[in-house]
Design a protein around this nucleic acid. Structure first.
Lengths: 134, 134
DNA sequence: AGTAAAGCAACTGGAAAAGTTACGTATGAC
DNA sequence: GTCATACGTAACTTTTCCAGTTGCTTTACT
């Protein structure tokens, strides 16, 4: 796998699940479909569970299930759940020596933040059932 | 440095240069400002030169200069120049075993592609002089 | 009890990017 | 013409991130 693999995995899985909501799927099944392994799947889906998009059950006949109607899960939900800001330069770390640089940093961050927001907004306009269905 | 450092470096440098266009800056100066080293700077700025955003001159009194008016350089120009697609899952690699999966992959790619486009469009609405100036 | 699932922590390995070094090439100053 | 300076580039090293893996625990159904 490569970059953006988490988002890709999440979208594929959710879209797939949107096909038959209510059905339980195990990490192993999902992993096999996605060509990866169960632990990786649990790591990613765990994030989605924290965000309230999925539920999981332990034990025999346990597994993963959609927590909501597929129509009510947007790409923004998925994106935010994974907590990977693509655009924003998150770092507030190194204080720049130059004062011009400092002001500049603020501005750049501001713009990128704004762009991130518009990206999320755009993602919010599509649900996973739309991705699947057509 | 971290992720998105290339974009960050590029934006900071261009914004800074937008302050006094026409002035020449050496890789060393820029590197020092950015807290990195000249070779890295040249690597990144080289991409911007290929895209026609900067010019460089060798030899004594050489260095980097904006190739256009700052107002005519948009964030999209910079982003595209660096050739780093943030959203799109570029891979057309592994042919999925499952046919449903194949169709799904197409759809997901399509959506991500579309989102990438809207991101670029949004980036195109801001010039580096706007980032700097206010 | 036994089996099958998630949860979790720790380690491994590989790839991508930054950083570094070294050398070539071009250009202006003297 | 030669010297200093700056980019251009290639090769190598180091760092960092993340998927992959392993092993163990917990939970729940049969």
């Amino acid at each position: 796998m490569k970059r953006n693999s988490r988002l890709s995995l999440a979208l594929h899985t959710l879209s797939h699940m949107a096909g038959s909501p209510g059905r339980v799927r195990t990490s192993s099944d999902i992993a096999e479909h996605a060509g990866t392994n169960p632990v990786v799947v649990r790591r990613v889906l765990g994030k989605l569970r924290e965000a309230g998009l999925l539920t999981s059950e332990k034990g025999h006949a346990g597994g993963w299930r959609l927590a909501r109607e597929p129509q009510n899960i947007t790409l923004a939900d998925v994106y935010l759940a994974l907590d990977e800001r693509m655009v924003a330069t998150n770092e507030a770390s190194e204080t720049p020596a130059c004062s011009v640089e400092h002001a500049l940093q603020e501005r750049v961050s501001g713009v990128l933040e704004e762009i991130e927001e518009s990206l999320v907004k755009r993602l919010g306009e599509t649900s996973i059932s739309e991705v699947r269905g057509g």
